[in-house]
Design a protein around this nucleic acid. Structure first.
Length: 362
DNA sequence: TAGCCGTGGGC
DNA sequence: TGCCCAAGGCT
């Protein structure tokens, strides 16, 4: 065994975290964990993994569920296309492969939501195939070890690091090696202020020998975030004894597709209710119905990776369901059943702060 | 293909 | 506080 492999694997066996998906080679569970961990830290995804694996212990049970259930279980984890693709992929695997995961890279790559990284992870960890994973950790570790000047987020980076990763792969146990190098990146070769003096690989690390561990990996600066202004309308009806509220499901190619929200008017800047209620969108929504304005929330700032959303919630009461609700795909649901629906974190926070709207109704 | 898609933690 | 970053994939 190459001493690099020896050092890395020794480190891994001593330092690795004990995580539930490390006690199995079940491709379904490996796949589930890999999708949950895409762009997500272990600490954030762990409880989701436990709930998914417990609710849907195999691919056929997941395939038999409804997409709305999967999205509800995914609520709060972000990147919701992962949840929609997870469900679609489960159906795909049941139909095309009789519920048995393929081990071939090309077949894995044809499954929804499985790209180069996830295919390599499943093939190596669950099936022992000699393919190298290339994730953010691998980029960082390799770029430091070899002082790679290629920007990791630039053109051609994928090829450069994939080929380097393939050279470094420990083919006698690719699954363990892949997990080891990722764990090494997550715990030892961390993005900020790595503890290089105590690193077992520092004698072989070009970045360390040049005192440049902070310089690598080289990155191209990202563009600034653009701002959006969301005005949510909490349109209540005073049906006794249960209050009802209008919600709708998001469609199209915008953020949070498949999740639910309150009727939304997007503007180009912050907006008062007086301004909002004279807009065409508002008039189309309400028709000529009478309503009572009960007040508005503070402005919420919700930062996404390259969006900053300014959101306000306006509370309105009508005496009955909006006449034009169907035209806007609005449903009228019981206030106490809002918890059944998957909402984006922004709205969920508002619902938590208002105790499920109780505090805005009085 | 470069831009898009969420959220929470750390400093 | 504001910014960076994290076991990526899709179009």
């Amino acid at each position: 065994m190459d001493s690099f492999h020896q050092i890395l694997l020794d480190w891994y066996h001593q330092q690795k975290r004990n995580l539930p998906w490390r006690n199995t080679k079940n491709p379904y569970l490996i796949w589930l964990s890999e999708v949950i961990l895409q762009q997500t830290r272990v600490n954030q995804g762990l409880s989701y993994y436990v709930r998914f694996a417990s609710t849907w212990p195999d691919v056929s049970s997941l395939a038999a569920s409804h997409e709305d259930e999967v999205l509800k279980m995914w609520q709060g984890l972000g990147y919701y296309s992962r949840a929609r693709n997870l469900h679609e992929a489960a159906k795909q695997i049941v139909e095309k492969y009789d519920g048995l995961f393929p081990s071939d890279m090309d077949e894995l790559l044809n499954i929804k939501g499985i790209g180069e990284y996830t295919a390599a992870a499943i093939a190596s960890i669950a099936f022992g195939k000699a393919v190298a994973v290339v994730d953010g950790n691998v980029y960082r570790v390799l770029s430091r070890l070899f002082a790679v000047e290629t920007p990791v987020n630039g053109k051609g980076a994928k090829e450069v690091f994939a080929s380097l990763a393939a050279e470094m792969l420990y083919t006698a146990d690719p699954g363990t090696y892949n997990q080891a190098i990722m764990e090494f990146g997550a715990l030892q070769c961390v993005p900020k202020k790595p503890n290089c003096p105590k690193c077992p690989l520092n004698a072989r690390c070009l970045a360390f020998s040049r005192k440049q561990s902070a310089y690598f990996p080289v990155k191209i600066p990202k563009k600034n975030v653009t701002e959006r202004f969301f005005n949510y309308l909490i349109i209540l009806t005073k049906d006794s004894p249960i209050n009802k509220v209008h919600i709708r499901k998001r469609h199209g190619n915008d953020i949070w597709k498949g999740l639910f929200e309150f009727p939304l008017i997007e503007t180009t800047g912050l907006c008062s209710f007086n301004e909002l209620s004279t807009m065409d969108q508002w008039k189309r929504l309400t028709g000529n119905q009478k309503y009572l304005f009960l007040g508005q929330s503070t402005t919420y700032k919700h930062r996404l990776t390259h969006r900053l959303i300014h959101a306000r919630f306006f509370i309105i009461q009508t005496d009955k369901k909006l006449d034009l609700a169907n035209d806007f795909n609005l449903s009228l649901v019981d206030q106490n059943e809002l918890g059944k629906y998957a909402f984006p974190r922004l709205i969920d926070k508002f619902l938590i702060e208002t105790d499920g709207l109780n505090k805005v109704i009085n």
